[in-house]
């Protein structure tokens, strides 16, 4: 009878292409490292890790959304900015309260978006675009257009920005939360169900998976993590306004995609995103050291994203 099999040839071709790409990346990195002055120094490595951390925390949270098959969120930059502003503002009630409040707010913002997408089937990209707009409006309104600075009499927040054992605190947070989320995705029922949901939404429904809950969870986690990063960003800049949005949204998405997570969901991992974040930070650092401008950095990032998306999806399609 007819056998359901996969074409072995295209699979090998796509795998070969990916392997070639990884080889190219490794080669470029090594070459860059060897020829860029100032790259192979401890302080530079620290700088790379620090830069990777802020984006990385957001990116690993975002990965849960990607794995669940909901593409990505375009609201994370705004979420980070608002979180930084809320954090700095709430410091008047103490460090613990400020952190807690910010995280809870982040979780709630994300959960709301997740509900709309999960329960009602709204398009995730558009919902997050709208949410971003709402957040921008709210941020300016509540802050009366001014930046938020921490209260004068409080310095507890400085702990979050200061180096511990030589590495800035955000790096530690990045490592810890990444490992935590990786464990959650690999070892919990929630994580397993997210992968299944992303793999085949129709089958997930037929298998009675709790789709709404999972989607709320995915967006909630992404937003929670982003809020956490916002706290660290606020503490580090000691100043928060919408300018903080910067390019966090696109950088986080790029990290998740470049790491090799399939944008259609179901395949990939937290570790890949972390690797993607570090890789992007490395390349950006190299470009910076060699005198390349912002524009070049963005351009290179874009090219890498496009190439990896093509390769990843080639591989997925041939399965």
């Amino acid at each position: 009878m007819a056998r359901v099999g996969i074409e072995p040839r295209p699979l090998r071709l796509a795998d070969a292409a990916l392997a070639a790409w990884i080889a190219i990346l490794a080669g470029v990195t090594v070459y860059g490292a060897a020829t860029t002055t100032g790259f192979l120094t401890v302080s530079n490595m620290k700088a790379i890790l620090t830069a990777a951390s802020f984006v990385g925390i957001i990116a690993v949270g975002l990965t849960v959304i990607v794995l669940s098959g909901n593409l990505f969120s375009l609201a994370l930059g705004q979420t980070a900015a608002i979180s930084a502003m809320v954090f700095l503002y709430s410091l008047r009630w103490g460090l613990a309260a400020a952190i807690l409040l910010t995280l809870v707010l982040g979780l709630a913002i994300g959960a709301a978006q997740g509900f709309v997408v999960g329960a009602w089937g709204a398009n995730p990209i558009i919902v997050t675009i709208g949410a971003a707009g709402l957040m921008e409006g709210m941020a300016v309104w509540l802050s009366h257009g001014q930046s938020i600075v921490p209260p004068v009499d409080q310095t507890s927040w400085e702990h979050l920005a200061n180096p511990v054992l030589g590495l800035p605190a955000p790096v530690y947070v990045f490592i810890v939360v990444t490992v935590l989320l990786a464990v959650v995705m690999a070892r919990t029922r929630f994580g397993r169900q997210i992968y299944l949901l992303g793999e085949n939404r129709v089958a997930a429904r037929a298998a009675a998976l709790p789709i709404t809950l999972l989607t709320v969870g995915a967006f909630g986690i992404a937003s929670l993590y982003t809020a956490g990063s916002g706290v660290l960003i606020g503490a580090t800049s000691a100043n928060a306004s919408l300018l903080l949005v910067g390019s966090y949204t696109y950088d986080a998405i790029a990290a998740a995609l470049v790491g090799g997570n399939a944008v259609t969901g179901g395949r990939g991992s937290i570790a890949r995103t972390a690797a993607g974040a570090i890789f992007i930070a490395t390349i950006s650092d190299m470009l910076l050291l060699r005198g390349y401008s912002t524009g070049a950095q963005i351009l290179v990032r874009g090219i890498i994203v496009v190439v990896v998306v093509v390769l990843t999806n080639l591989r997925e399609r041939s399965r």
Partner: peptide, 23 residues
């Protein structure tokens, strides 16, 4: 289309309906 999660392992497919009991 609607039954299996083709890219996931057979193990994951077999256990999809009983994850609550297995955790």
């Amino acid at each position: 289309r609607e039954g299996l999660f083709l890219g996931q392992t057979a193990e994951r497919n077999l256990t999809v309906s009983r994850l609550r009991r297995l955790s």
